[in-house]
Design a protein around this nucleic acid. Structure first.
Lengths: 179, 179
DNA sequence: TCGCAATGGTTGCATTCGCAACTATTGCGA
DNA sequence: TCGCAATAGTTGCGAATGCAACCATTGCGA
């Protein structure tokens, strides 16, 4: 794991090799796998990745606010806002203002929206299945565990770094941010 | 692993839960971990992620062409081009045209560039170390293995999907692309 | 040796992105 | 009850992104 190479007779110089650097490798893998899934639906259904995330989120648990979708799918609220606007204009999502709180609105899939979800979900699942095809069962489980753990850890480290940088004060958040 | 839920008495309906969907989880994790590292250097050294990737690549093996950097760091050639231009204008990288082939140029870190590399590399490595701190040794190895395997597999699937979509012809590549 | 395809790299342009600022509404403490 | 802080969501705007087109140079086959 450690990339620190000690060479005889020379001062130990920690060299970083990008190809072995975990965050870098995760990025490459994430980009590749995302592009793969995206290609399965983007062209055919004219749907972007953020749009798909919204459709998928609504497909699981209908009637969510934009805020909830953002939290659930880890997307910036502006991205959610614009993608939702687009989906509404194309008749895939319906917006219904919450009469209890006029600031927010509930979003639901229209029948066409649900049809799109039902069509794409199996494609995505089979893609995932093909992706992990070569892994041993043990490795699959290890990956599941590790991803969860690393995600939690990343979030913690990030918050920590943020607070360190934010002049050592505040609850780690500028005006908006966080999400 | 499988997200297929079978419910008693109802037709088995494969539902996709974003939170469990591997490409999605990888994206969240990759974004979080990248932001973490980036925060360690971006503010302090005024360096962006693409710029850091270039510096890191050159730091490992000096004297590379832009093309080689792109291949090594999986960045689009336009991204490399612009980031390199920026690094040169800031005196961190030096460009030297290859007299054997006037189309390409060799890039090297200047002393200041190397200093930046030497400063950031340990930060990045220690970040990585803190990231995987909680994982068991077995899980670390499993993750290493799995990331490699999944990356290879993703690439293969992507190529396959591309050829399927490109009218079933061509060596899976439009004018430029690939990288 | 000539000409054309391929390659390294840059640039124009449209799209995407996210931060900051803003509006509208609600919650809450004085 | 008044007023201010917090929240949901939208929008302006600059920066980043990637594709397509382009330039310059080289390789290679006729």
């Amino acid at each position: 794991m450690s990339q620190i190479k000690s060479r005889k007779d020379t001062v130990q110089r920690p060299t970083l090799e990008l190809e072995r650097f975990l965050p870098y490798r995760l990025n490459v893998l994430a980009a590749l796998s995302s592009e793969g899934v995206a290609r399965l639906y983007s062209r055919r259904f004219g749907i972007s990745i953020p749009e798909w995330r919204i459709v998928a989120t609504l497909g699981e648990s209908d009637r969510l606010t934009a805020h909830a979708i953002g939290g659930h799918s880890h997307m910036h609220k502006t991205k959610v806002s614009r993608a939702v606007g687009d989906l509404i204009s194309r008749g895939l999502v319906r917006r219904e203002i919450n009469k209890r709180d006029l600031r927010e609105a509930f979003l639901t899939l229209t029948p066409s929206g649900r049809a799109v979800y039902e069509a794409i979900a199996p494609l995505a699942l089979s893609y995932e299945a093909r992706l992990v095809e070569g892994l041993s069962e043990a490795d699959r489980l290890a990956v599941e565990r590790a991803i969860s753990a690393l995600t939690v850890r990343s979030r913690a480290l990030l918050d920590q770094i943020k607070t360190e940088q934010n002049g050592e004060s505040e609850p780690a958040s500028s005006p908006d941010q966080i999400a």
